[in-house]
């Protein structure tokens, strides 16, 4: 993208309450449910465009959740039941009971709608093979590696290929589980490379922060066939403005990526998605400028929240994105 510091979202937004009410209403017709989903997607697209994001999607408003949604449509999985995430929060977890296989492009309707209703560049989020395997019970394959590669080759690759065939140009492979097992980074690298093999598109990898601070990911980055990584930084940075290492503690690992020879783009997380407080535009600006200096190339810096904003209210989410766009504008002015 020719513009400096392009802004983008990462993934999911909280779903509108009226949409949820309607889709759960046993008396609502299929037509009514389709309409309310389309309205919600349109609302998200237009809101993100009006705020001024350069790259948008629909806030994953049609998807149940990033794991459950794809698993519903993939051969070889059976849901086992719910497992705790924390406190009273649970997620549905599936068993792999046979060979995994792609059945249909479960994001096709969603993508076509966004394409028809947006004027901006689109980035399509797709759950990655490593995370699908890590969050499932494997009763079929001999090893976790075997399952991961089967998912990469037989599920994610055909899905991505189909999306690209429909016109998708940027695909974000979501891998929140990737950095939670530092000893498994080799198979993670292989899974991404297998997922994108032979497909002509821009690939972005989103990995959440773990206690390892991306140190295990850094050596793999130049070997993974992704042009961009969207990563979390804000959640461990200070809230003080400034361009010094003390103020920008959360972003220091960027230097490590460069040391390991990664020369691609980084979508820097500038907004903490776990708190309601809104970062100031000046704080966002300084995070961007620090990253530009650390990577020694401002054109490599994209700007996004740390992760999906679905745990925040819609008001807080849009305020955070609005401030992010303002902060990027301030950063561009500094670079002029």
């Amino acid at each position: 993208m020719s513009k400096l510091f392009p802004t983008q979202e990462i993934g999911s937004l909280k779903k509108p309450a009226d949409m949820l009410k309607k889709v759960k209403d046993p008396n609502a017709s299929d037509e009514e449910k389709i309409k309310v989903r389309n309205d919600a997607a349109l609302l998200n697209i237009k809101t993100l465009e009006d705020i001024g994001l350069d790259i948008v999607y629909d806030g994953e408003v049609r998807r149940v959740e990033m794991y459950e949604e794809p698993v519903r449509y993939v051969d070889g999985f059976e849901f086992a039941g719910r497992v705790r995430s924390w406190d009273n929060k649970y997620y549905k977890k599936a068993r792999v009971v046979g060979p995994v296989a792609f059945k249909q492009n479960f994001h096709a309707e969603e993508f076509n709608f966004v394409k028809d209703n947006s004027k901006k560049e689109l980035k399509v989020p797709v759950t990655g093979a490593y995370t699908l395997a890590d969050w499932s019970y494997d009763e079929h394959y001999k090893s976790k590696d075997e399952l991961i590669l089967a998912l990469a080759r037989n599920v994610v690759r055909p899905l991505v290929k189909d999306l690209v065939g429909l016109g998708a140009k940027i695909i974000q492979i979501d891998e929140p589980a990737a950095t939670t097992h530092p000893s498994e980074m080799d198979i993670f690298r292989e899974s991404i490379n297998e997922s994108v093999k032979g497909i002509d598109a821009k690939f972005v990898v989103h990995a959440c922060f773990s206690g390892n601070d991306y140190k295990a990911l850094a050596p793999q980055m130049p070997e993974i066939k992704a042009e961009q990584y969207t990563l979390e930084f804000a959640n461990r940075d200070t809230w003080n403005t400034g361009l010094g290492d003390d103020a920008r503690k959360g972003f220091q690992v960027l230097k490590l990526f460069k040391e390991h020879g990664f020369e691609g783009e980084i979508g820097i997380g500038v907004s903490d998605v776990h708190v309601n407080e809104i970062e100031s535009p000046e704080l966002i600006r300084d995070r961007i400028l620090y990253a530009a200096k650390a990577l020694d190339d401002p054109t490599k810096v994209y700007v996004n929240p740390d992760c999906g904003l679905r745990t925040r209210t819609r008001e807080v989410s849009f305020d955070k994105i609005r401030t992010m766009v303002k902060g990027a504008e301030l950063a561009r002015e500094e670079i002029k």
Binding site: V83, R84, S85, D134, W135, T180, S210
Partner: peptide
């Protein structure tokens, strides 16, 4: 205080 991941699990403790 904050939620933290239980080692390498997809589960969190406070």
């Amino acid at each position: 205080t904050a939620l933290n991941r239980i080692y390498e699990m997809n589960t969190f403790y406070r």
